[in-house]
């Protein structure tokens, strides 16, 4: 219990230090860049729960994330709910989506799940493009207040929300890793048949993991329309999210709670820097190459590299 408490206190302290530091900096761009990095901490952490621990590859991060973003838009238009209830709605919808996809495909070999998630993104995009209520292919606008009292600016509020989500996601990942669920998922990754034979309820654990993974990805997407003020299907379903969600945990070290955080901070900062200085097509290309080179040369990621040496 002690280590859990220490983790949460440490994470909270780190978060407060980040907010204080950015306030001192006093530049709105700091919040925007920080949000960009933190959304990937959530996305990579979510991917890691299924991909890292259980070894099941989810290619549909963009689809789940967009499902979350559009859930937030729908509840805003339909019920007038704001960001925070929108996040809960996103978690619910994307979690359900994860459960459904998992239920239909997870009884088979793992690659079928991967293929299904890959197609899921394409099909969800078709549905959204055809759905006029959320703007169809024209996209949807979210108009928000300029300032919200306790915060200095709207972007600071978004940053703090995303920071909280990133801490919660990392904490969930850590809790999963240390719980029976995590150990069961690791057993599935190492040898699913053997795990089944010794009484690990493999299908149930996998379904819990896909639901959790989908829900957290949805959460990562929910503030996106608020962040950009406008969302169209092309931006929401961008393949960049899917490739980053895989590349970050694998580069940081999949199957450890800290791996996705390291990978996300590293890769997202790099991309943010490259977008500002070079072109955005080139920086995506770099991410693709980094993914391929890392999985080939350092399959256990940065953390695995250090562990082997220690």
């Amino acid at each position: 219990m002690n280590t859990h408490l220490r983790f949460w206190l440490g994470a909270a302290a780190l978060g407060l230090a980040l907010v204080a530091g950015l306030r001192l900096l006093g530049n709105d761009y700091g919040y925007f860049a920080g949000y960009f990095v933190l959304q990937y901490v959530v996305l990579a952490g979510a991917w890691n729960i299924l991909g890292g621990y259980a070894g099941y590859v989810n290619f549909g991060a963009a689809g789940f994330m967009a499902a979350g973003a559009y859930s937030a838009i729908v509840v805003r238009q339909w019920l007038g709910w704001d960001l925070i209830p929108g996040i809960f709605a996103a978690a619910f919808v994307a979690g359900l989506l994860g459960l459904g996809t998992g239920y239909l495909t997870l009884r088979l070999k793992g690659v079928y799940f991967s293929i299904a998630t890959l197609c899921l993104a394409v099909v969800l995009q078709t549905l959204v493009v055809n759905w006029d209520y959320v703007g169809g292919s024209r996209g949807a606008y979210i108009i928000h207040a300029r300032d919200i009292p306790p915060f200095n600016s709207y972007s600071e509020m978004l940053f703090i929300v995303m920071l909280a989500l990133a801490i919660i996601t990392t904490g969930i990942g850590r809790a999963v890793e240390m719980s029976r669920l995590g150990r069961g998922l690791q057993a599935i990754r190492d040898n699913e048949r053997a795990a089944e034979a010794v009484g690990v309820p493999t299908l149930r654990l996998k379904l819990v993991a896909t639901t959790l993974c989908g829900a957290l990805m949805g959460v990562a997407g929910a503030p996106l329309p608020y962040y950009s003020g406008y969302l169209n299907p092309e931006a929401a379903f961008s393949l960049a999210y899917a490739v980053n969600a895989i590349a970050m945990p694998l580069i940081g070290g999949a199957g450890t709670w800290a791996g996705p955080v390291i990978g996300a901070v590293l890769l997202a900062s790099l991309q943010q820097a490259a977008t500002v200085t070079i072109s955005s097509a080139l920086n995506l290309w770099i991410v693709g190459w980094m993914l391929v080179i890392f999985v080939a040369v350092a399959p256990r990621g940065i953390l695995g590299w250090f562990r082997r040496r220690a």
Partner: peptide, 15 residues
């Protein structure tokens, strides 16, 4: 093949 191999082909597709 399972995890890293899939990620490899995904990376190739993206590149």
């Amino acid at each position: 093949e399972a995890l890293q191999g899939l990620a490899f082909f995904f990376g190739v597709m993206f590149i």
